[in-house]
Design a protein around this nucleic acid. Structure first.
Length: 392
DNA sequence: ATTGCTGAAGGG
């Protein structure tokens, strides 16, 4: 009832193998653990796919009927190219994704092409930018630790990872209802045909008894964000509300969750996950037990929809509050934005770079040198220069 | 394996 466990949140340790020695052993011992070696394999395959596709488009210029599809060529390698070709795979398939993160759509809101380059070249960041992100992350972690402890749970499968997420939800809902505040609440659900996964920074009840979402943004420089940054942040918290509301209203069903995530309900949970479930007072044997329990807890705990969306900007170095905003939730606007972004992910349209008036974003973009959008725009730039603007 | 797979957010 008041033990440390009820105030603890679990973190999975698969991607942080240095925290516990036992985790390292489990990872190397288990062939299906998705460690770093698996990741590099997948990146290599992706790279080869892209090369294949480039070759297949280049082969169109060969002598013969040039209007023919590349795959019409009688070489078997071309059949292979057609099967793997970029033009028949949606970005979701090409990147081997079953769902997206809320922040994927937010980066897409900032610059769609930058988000694509980020997926193609993961971990490609300048050290300066990485340092700012690290500072932000540790400030968030410090705030989280003010509210609860973190317990590291070793895992090996994605089913374990989701089970940890579910156990956290099961412990956080009662905490929110009794103590009025939680941090890092996981959310997931379908929006406009795509499944989104994210984490709400903070939820609390106000003195008026309203449920408020609070998103902290830390900033390198002691200045308020530009409108473009605010727009992105507004979109982020709006997505959280959209998904959270759907969850507590029972619109995110166990069946829908399993359908999108392709979780194996009959895969046995890892011993450490089962141990922590038992210690947390949850008598679950399987993942499907856990999912049903989460669904019931979400829908039967008298959780309201989120009433207010609050953004707070603070200076990283001095912790000075730079500003606070209350965001108006515009459901139709959120939906139509998501529809537009999803159209890219489903392969219904090509990715776009920023509009000319947002070209200043390129100044701090890590992909500025390879960006195709900028190259294309450069060819037109003479007619688009501000001083070339004529009477219209 | 004719193959599989995901801590999310971190800031501009």
């Amino acid at each position: 009832m008041f033990g440390t466990l009820s105030r603890s949140l679990f973190v999975q340790s698969r991607t942080v193998p240095c925290i516990m020695a036992e985790t390292r052993e489990e990872e190397t011992a288990s062939a299906e653990a998705s460690g770093f070696s698996d990741l590099s394999d997948s990146e290599l395959v992706e790279f080869l796919d892209l090369e294949d596709a480039k070759e297949s488009t280049a082969s169109v210029s060969k002598p013969g009927p040039s209007s023919e599809l590349p795959g019409k060529d009688d070489k078997p390698v071309s059949v292979q190219n057609w099967k793997n070709g970029l033009d028949v795979l949606s970005p979701m398939e090409r990147f081997h994704l079953k769902y997206l993160y809320v922040t994927d759509l937010c980066t897409q809101n900032w610059c769609e092409l930058q988000m694509v380059y980020g997926k193609e070249l993961p971990g490609f960041l300048t050290p300066e930018k990485a340092a700012v992100l690290d500072t932000g992350a540790s400030i968030h972690l410090a705030k989280e630790l003010e509210l609860h402890d973190l317990v590291t749970v070793p895992i090996t499968t994605k089913e374990d990872a989701w089970a940890i997420k579910f156990l956290n939800i099961l412990s956080m809902i009662p905490t929110l209802q009794s103590e009025g505040r939680i941090r890092e609440f996981p959310v997931f659900g379908e929006v406009e045909g795509i499944f989104l996964v994210g984490v709400i920074d903070e939820l609390h009840y106000t003195s008026k008894g309203e449920l408020e979402l609070a998103e902290l943004k830390t900033r390198r420089r002691p200045m308020l964000p530009l409108p473009a940054q605010k727009k992105k942040d507004h979109f982020q918290v709006s997505l959280y509300k959209y998904i959270f509301d759907a969850m507590v209203q029972g619109k995110v069903t166990p069946a829908g969750l399993v359908h999108h995530t392709k979780l194996c309900l009959d895969k046995p949970l890892g011993p450490s996950v089962l141990r922590h479930a038992r210690q947390g007072g949850f008598s679950v044997k399987s993942l499907s037990d856990l999912i049903e329990l989460v669904f019931l807890s979400l829908t039967l705990s008298d959780l309201p929809a989120i009433d207010t969306l609050r953004l707070e900007y603070i200076h990283q170095e001095t912790a000075t509050v730079l500003g606070t905003e209350i965001v108006a939730f515009e459901e139709k606007e959120v939906k139509s934005k998501v529809q537009h972004y999803v159209a890219y992910w489903m392969g219904h349209r090509e990715p776009q770079g920023v509009d000319v008036e947002d070209a200043w974003k390129c100044r701090t973009c890590d992909y500025v040198d390879i960006c195709e959008w900028r190259k294309d725009r450069g060819a037109l730039s003479s007619s688009l220069e501000p001083n070339a603007k004529k009477s219209k």
